[in-house]
Write a protein that binds this DNA or RNA. Structure first.
Length: 425
RNA sequence: GGUGGGGUACCGAAGCGGUCAAACGGGGCAGACUGUAAAUCUGCUGGCUUAGCCUUCGGAGGUUCGAAUCCUCCCCCCACCA
């Protein structure tokens, strides 16, 4: 058995662990679980740390169990939340759980003999409880002073937004999940983000009290970037693992754009590269930063895992074409291929004939600019390009002579944001 | 319930009868330099049919030639007292 906590430690993935967790995990194969909130039908890059946590557990010989909070998702976890949550419907939760399982399959092996990953849904056991039984059998073991002392509860009680009884009860449900998994699947370790520490230790306490059992908790750090801003957001919002929500191209670009200061850290977090390989990249970042070898390796590794070799290839082709600069060598078919990853809109071929259509009108149909005033300013500021040629006239018109092979016009704002306009009809 | 302070654009925060689409800072966007990085510097940052016009300063009325600024009522926050 390799020591999984040692592995997590050098990768910077270990934030805290309950006493004895390291020895417990080093001793023999265990079952480890992490809960995922089914608030959306897709996971996003913010979930990658816990996912990688499970990956490391499986590689070390433990059995990873992903719990989808079908029951708890109906309640909502107050941890790290400033306001009461919207409640999800049961149908939402069920559908979202299915999406999450498909994505986890890219990371975890669900077929591997001894320690295949498993997926469980806490709705399966939480739904069976009656309120009276739950209060008698589970609630009885929780002291109010301990519950009130939890950071997530304290901060919400102090704020004007308050905390409903529903969300307050969340810790009981999560604790009970741990107990249930301890009993039915012999799960002895729960992992999660550092914000889950309170919920996890509440679970280990419950197991000790009710079953006199030993259970452990391991938590990962919250990922930040060197700017101290939130990780996992791009200009278009969350970066999702679902290619329908975030195209492989944009996903790849998200990683390529990682700061130098964060690149090595992210390689440790999000890839399975060895210590030696990562050290080599660290040296490259220092000696020849302009090559951006670490960022490329990071983007390549993560994109391949999430979107497959095929998705990676398409993302890289698009990148080469777009950042190579010159579009003139590309035919319409190449363009269509490359830009399949990029947002697009259509215009009728008729509209482009003669005087064509005002660029401002064309931009109205895109998400490149938020208003005509915004579009005007972008052009005046020299930040707008047609077919990679800077536009210097606010009243620029786009005609059929701009359309490559009569089919496509490429709009670009700034260095990186592209939009493809297809002529139809 | 009483007293005092306050609600201004994405956020923080000035302004307290005209020169206010509203200082300044942050954030965001773009440009320059670079390496699709960071830092730095520059410009922009309500909408539109853009030398002009329209809608904004908690809400509704009012005074005035003219209101974010004055008055009335209402709503909401904060502090202290009860």
């Amino acid at each position: 058995m390799t020591s999984v906590l040692e592995e997590l430690t050098w990768r910077g993935l270990l934030h805290d662990a309950t006493e004895g967790a390291g020895a417990h995990l080093a001793e023999e194969p265990r079952a480890v679980y992490i809960g995922f909130d089914p608030t959306a039908s897709s996971l996003h890059v913010g979930n990658l740390v816990p996912i990688m946590g499970l990956v490391h557990m499986q590689r070390a010989g433990h059995t990873p169990i992903a719990l989808v909070g079908g029951g708890t998702g109906l309640i909502g976890d107050p941890s790290g939340r400033t306001a009461e949550r919207q409640l999800l419907t049961k149908e939402d939760v069920a559908a979202n759980g299915g999406g999450i399982r498909r994505q986890l399959a890219h990371f975890l092996d669900f077929d591997r003999g001894d320690n295949a990953a498993r997926m469980v849904n806490n709705l399966d056991w939480l739904a069976e409880w009656s309120l009276l039984d739950f209060l008698r059998d589970v609630g009885k073991h929780f002291g109010m002073s301990q519950l009130l002392a939890k950071e997530s509860v304290k901060s919400r009680l102090g704020s004007e937004l308050g905390l409903s009884f529903t969300e307050f009860s969340y810790a009981l449900l999560q604790s009970y999940d741990f107990l249930e998994l301890y009993r039915r699947e012999s799960v002895t370790v729960q992992a999660g983000g550092s914000d889950q520490w309170g919920n996890i230790t509440a679970g280990t306490d419950l197991i000790r009290r009710v079953d006199a059992g030993k259970a452990f908790g391991v938590v990962f750090p919250l990922v930040t970037n060197s700017q101290g801003t939130k990780f996992g957001k791009s200009h278009s919002g969350n970066v999702w693992l679902d290619p329908k929500r975030t195209s492989p191209y944009r996903f790849y670009q998200f990683w390529v754009n990682t700061d130098d200061a964060d690149a090595v850290c992210y390689l440790k977090y999000f890839t399975l590269l060895s210590r030696e390989e990562i050290t080599a990249f660290e040296e490259q970042v220092a000696s020849e930063p302009h090559r951006r070898a670490a960022q490329r390796a990071l983007a390549e590794d993560v994109t391949r895992r999430v979107h497959g070799a095929d998705g990676l290839t398409r993302a890289q082709q698009a990148t080469d074409a777009l950042f190579g600069g010159d579009l003139s060598g590309l035919g319409a078919d190449d363009l269509a291929d490359v830009f399949s990853e990029v947002p697009s809109s259509t215009v009728t071929a008729d509209a482009l004939s003669g005087d064509g259509v005002a660029l401002l009108d064309l931009l109205d149909e895109t998400e490149l600019t938020s208003s005509r005033g915004d579009a005007r300013r972008a052009i005046e500021g020299g930040g707008m390009y047609v077919n990679n040629v800077r536009v210097d006239d606010v009243d620029r018109r786009v005609t059929s002579s701009d359309a490559i092979e009569g089919r496509f016009v490429v709009l670009r704002k700034g260095k990186k944001r592209y939009h493809l306009v297809a002529a139809e009809g």
